[in-house]
Design a protein around this nucleic acid. Structure first.
Lengths: 206, 206
DNA sequence: ACACACATGTAATTGGTTACATGATTTC
DNA sequence: GAAATCATGTAACCAATTACATGTGTGT
């Protein structure tokens, strides 16, 4: 009845392309919505079963009877049923729920003064690198997607989400430049206060 | 030993201001880091106990012996211990972990074509309103914070996080303007294809 | 008298990650 | 024949939300 978000990702993916296995889905997710959504196998496989039991998707081929059938041949593909498709559309029309925000980077920055500016600076640098990598990834996704899917009816929705990702990351990077200056400023102040020998605030012990 | 993030929020809050109760903390969180962090009572109170047991915080006053002591007088305040403070600093120095991203708004937009542009437009409009409200909130937090805390040693870290929030939201709003145009464009195309009588794509039933 | 804000907590449930286990097939 | 990749799954754990339960003091 009340399906998790994972279920809808699966339905959505199958609505775009039939005959995907759990393994496929995970890879598709990483290569398309990866920058704003993630799923683990531990979540995908059980959900696949549940959706099958509920009749929202159907397995293909000999249909999963008997043992799990491991190994490369053990591949089990699924497709959407009409019911599943209807269910997806229902869900799409429902207001999205915004999940409680949790950003540990910001949390550490917020409490950062206790650790001294060098620590925050380190986190910030990591943040920048991460965002640059992410930007590269998104742009790559966009490039590949445009090459081979420009005709696809979903295409325009896809670029919308991509563009949002790009906008968000660019904003983060711009902010991070300014933030870095602030932190460097604070460090040099701390250094001056501490005298010439060390630029560390006195606190440090071994 | 391995403490949840909630534990560190508590330690952090107490490092800034002592003698807070669980109730206080929740309100403080909402009024300061609320736009990037949330906590529920169901998480705070158990954690408070655990942290007390581990000696990272101490209860004040008659110290929590006997019954829970409900009602307005039942207020139990806590402060950081030296160990707790050390632990906070340790955690601050550790690399932040980035939690798996999950944005249902983007997910629905990504799969949006199945529901037609009107649906996505509705979500987008909600998204805009939400972000405008959030922007107002953050700016309010910033205003109040600047008025009464400009001297506070943590102040510069706080504005950094606030500014990030503002930057992120502004980017979201700018993007949303462009996105709205795209969706409207799609709608008018769909309307044209469907003839003069209705501007809805044929799909609709009921 | 009533509503509201203060104040603390528990139980049930969910949603999810991580680590593990297994094994086939391709490629080098 | 070793390593990488394809492929499926389970068990243990954990973090967190939600809904509930309880009760006091203050302001109108």
């Amino acid at each position: 009845m009340k399906s998790s978000q994972t279920a809808y990702v699966i339905l959505g993916l199958l609505s775009i392309e039939s005959r995907q296995s759990g393994y496929d889905m995970r890879r598709t997710i990483q290569g398309s919505v990866g920058y704003f959504w993630g799923e683990s196998y531990g979540q995908i496989y059980p959900t696949l079963r549940r959706l099958t039991a509920e009749g929202l998707i159907t397995p293909h081929g000999q249909a999963a009877k008997g043992r799990p059938a491991k190994g490369r041949g053990g591949r089990q593909e699924y497709s959407l049923t009409a019911v599943g498709h209807a269910r997806l559309r229902e869900w799409l029309a429902l207001p999205y729920r915004r999940d409680p925000p949790r950003d540990e980077f910001l949390l550490k920055l917020f409490f950062g003064r206790d650790a001294g500016p060098e620590v925050s600076e380190r986190h910030l640098r990591e943040f920048q690198e991460q965002n640059r990598r992410l930007l590269a990834t998104i742009e790559e996704i966009g490039r590949i997607g445009t090459e081979k899917n420009a005709q696809h009816p979903h295409f325009r929705y896809w670029i919308l989400t991509l563009e949002y990702g790009v906008a968000r990351i660019r904003a983060a990077l711009e902010w991070s430049e300014r933030a870095m200056e602030v932190l460097e400023q604070m460090e040099s102040e701390a250094g001056r206060r501490a005298g010439k020998k060390t630029r560390r605030p006195a606190k440090r012990r071994s």
